[in-house]
Design a protein around this nucleic acid. Structure first.
Length: 361
DNA sequence: CGTGTTTGACCGGCGC
DNA sequence: GCGCCGGTCAAACACG
């Protein structure tokens, strides 16, 4: 179902509620819009008839995240993949993620308990009960103190499940023998909201959907995905905001301990050379970059980059991405559209807040 | 045939 | 203890 989303817009919404006190009065929204067409269009997937892959908008691509080009990318930072350059000091992205957390808590508390609070603000003090979820600070790979549990654990549930087989569990069904007397540990989580008509944004990794559940108080189901890379237990949940159907909430759990998979049908190629496909090409700021901009919060300037008509992708940044994203390729479509004056298309913060408030209720 | 999705059932945590 | 609910499993199915 979500397989064939028509996606024509993908606005990634990052938290815009950084406390002014924290960032010098950041009032701007942390929204960046990505209005794109579906990958069915020529651009996506490098022309390969990407069905499954094509169905999900090249999220990383949209983000202009090119692992081989920009590292650590946003997601890599989130996942602090070992294959990437040393993760940033926790402090740098910490704020950002806390920011996310706060926002997400607002946005999602009603639907999930898994969003941690104050993951970074006070790791130790995070009285949040969840042993692992709280730790959710993907941006702090080295901060073992924060993520005492999950990070060092094999990112796979699979392993935990198969670790100890209790026969009694098989009375009804050969289901996964989960560890008893031991809370299931969750991987650190990171979530963000996306303005998109497609639920499953392609972030460069291969995901396999393993479940879908109806979300309480929401007409939209939540989908569960797992990274298909062998040994990688990273999961992600995707759900659409009930209040704002155009908003998709994606929650990543765990960290990829592997490079991007070789994407079949061009997605990867997409990611490695956006210029060839007209993918939007802004680069998610690197940690130091983020940090720097967080400090310059006063000048919140949302940015919107739009892909060429073929892709119809519009992306805007604001909030901690307030500064100009670095363009990977000046010839990219992003710039092209930028020239089209689409940068004016800024999603206002109020819009975000509206959503927040609504969901808070 | 390989890979991914769908979907009903099951499991475990948690609140009452 | 019970029921709700989120998360997961896995068989069946779809698709290229």
């Amino acid at each position: 179902m979500e397989k064939k989303q028509e996606n024509h817009m993908a606005n990634i919404i990052f938290p815009d509620e950084i406390p002014p006190s924290a960032f010098g009065g950041g009032s701007g929204g942390s929204i960046f819009d990505m209005a794109g067409t579906s990958c069915e269009t020529s651009g996506c997937g490098g022309g390969g008839g990407a069905d499954k892959w094509g169905s999900s908008l090249g999220f990383m691509d949209l983000l202009g995240i090119h692992q081989d080009f920009v590292a650590p990318s946003l997601f890599d930072s989130f996942n602090h993949s070992p294959i990437l350059p040393p993760p940033p000091p926790s402090s740098e992205l910490a704020a950002v993620f806390n920011h996310h957390d706060d926002m997400l808590l607002n946005e999602l508390d009603t639907n999930t308990k898994h969003f941690h609070q104050g993951s970074l603000l006070s790791p130790a003090a995070s009285a949040v009960p969840e042993s692992s979820e709280v730790l959710n600070n993907p941006a702090t790979p080295n901060s073992s103190s924060i993520s005492s549990s999950s990070n060092e654990q094999p990112a796979n549930d699979e392993q935990n499940k198969t670790g100890d087989h209790d026969d009694e569990d098989k009375t009804k069904k050969p289901l996964k023998p989960k560890k008893k007397n031991q809370k299931r540990q969750r991987e650190p989580r990171f979530a963000f909201m996306t303005k998109s008509e497609i639920d499953h944004l392609d972030d460069g990794y291969r995901w396999r959907k393993y479940g879908q559940k109806a979300v309480k108080n929401s007409p939209y189901p939540r989908s569960y995905y797992r990274c298909t890379t062998a040994g990688c237990g990273v999961k992600k949940r995707v759900e659409r905001s009930s209040d704002d159907p155009t908003t998709v909430v994606t929650t990543y759990e765990g960290q990829h301990m592997h490079p991007y998979p070789i994407m079949p049908r061009g997605t990867m190629a997409f990611a490695t050379d956006s210029s060839s496909f007209g993918a939007p090409s802004f680069v998610v700021p690197q940690p130091h970059y983020l940090h720097q901009h967080l400090q310059n919060q006063q000048q919140l300037q949302p940015y919107i980059y739009t892909s060429p008509p073929s892709l119809n992708i519009t992306t805007s940044f604001s909030g901690f991405f307030q500064d100009k994203p670095s363009f990977i390729n000046p010839n990219s479509s992003a710039l092209a559209l930028k020239d089209h004056g689409l940068l004016q298309d800024i999603v206002s913060t109020p819009m975000r807040r509206e959503t927040n408030e609504e969901e808070d209720q």
